[in-house]
């Protein structure tokens, strides 16, 4: 058993040292209590629904979310809008479909099976409309940034007056959490920008938290089932390990040797 502990502590040290070596970030991100962290972490449904509102009303004018479908909005583990609500949301978007029997493309109201409508037809169009900078697709954005949710949450609140020693070009803004501190996106949020249906006060901090929660879900739509299954799997493995350990002791008791 002693050896075993040694073994596992070495494994953990190796892993820890490796993961730390990647965490080369020096900036301290703003912290908040994310409901989805931890062994039993779950999303806050109300926050997800508010986050979706912030996304559609604010972000969606520039940022696509091309891997999401409207049906996802009513699926378990997500914002869990009712199916009727999700249908209504989908129908409020014009979707290009076709070609029809005349060979022409046409538009129709969106359906649950449609992907989120994109603000621009392609990357080039997005760049042209944004002074050459491509507003990244937001579907997996949280996983595509080193600091994850904390980074996005901080960035949204990180706009400041540039220090006097930094000169900014036109269309470039100062953000203390952005890599290199220069960002092509103007501060997207300001207090009261959206009006929450549930009466929550739409402060920049609140909106940042809601939309970041929404982005976490969009990047990891199965996070809740992952946590639930993980807990069951690990409990199961521990039980089986204990059973196997005692079986092993019994079997090895036949030989005069230490296991």
């Amino acid at each position: 058993m002693k050896n075993l502990f040694k073994l596992f502590s070495i494994i953990i040290i190796i892993i820890a040292s490796n993961s730390y070596s990647f965490a080369a970030e020096k900036v301290k991100y703003l912290k908040t209590d994310w409901s989805f962290k931890g062994l039993f972490g779950k999303f806050d449904r109300a926050s997800l629904q508010r986050g979706y509102q912030v996304y559609t009303e604010v972000c969606a004018s520039c940022h696509s979310m091309k891997y999401l479908s409207y049906r996802n909005l009513s699926e378990p583990g997500g914002p869990e809008f009712s199916e009727a609500q999700a249908k209504a949301i989908a129908a409020s978007f014009e979707v290009t479909d076709g070609p029809n029997s005349d060979g022409e493309m046409f538009t129709r109201p969106g359906k649950l099976s449609d992907k989120f409508v994109m603000p621009y037809d392609n990357v080039k169009a997005a760049q042209a409309a944004n002074g050459g900078a491509y507003p990244p697709d937001m579907s997996v954005l949280v996983k595509a940034r080193g600091g994850g949710v904390d980074y996005i949450y901080s960035l949204l609140q990180g706009y400041e007056e540039a220090p006097s020693n930094i000169s900014l070009d036109d269309g470039v803004y100062y953000n203390k959490y952005m890599y290199g501190n220069k960002i092509r996106m103007a501060a997207p949020l300001l207090d009261g920008l959206v009006e929450y249906g549930d009466g929550t006060n739409a402060t920049v901090e609140q909106m940042s938290k809601d939309v970041t929660t929404f982005l976490m879900w969009s990047a990891e739509p199965h996070l809740e089932s992952r946590h639930q299954m993980g807990f069951k799997a690990i409990v199961y493995l521990i039980i089986l390990t204990i059973l196997v350990y005692f079986s092993m002791k019994k079997i090895w008791s036949r030989v005069e040797s230490e296991v």
């Binding site: 596992f8 992952r226 799997a233 493995l237 090895w252």
Partner: peptide
Amino acid sequence: VIKDGFALLMFMIVFAFFVFYAPNIL
């Protein structure tokens, strides 16, 4: 067989931890 099985299960606990709780850390 039983000894390897025991060690394998310990290994699987570490494995499961990564898969379910830190799938992108590596």
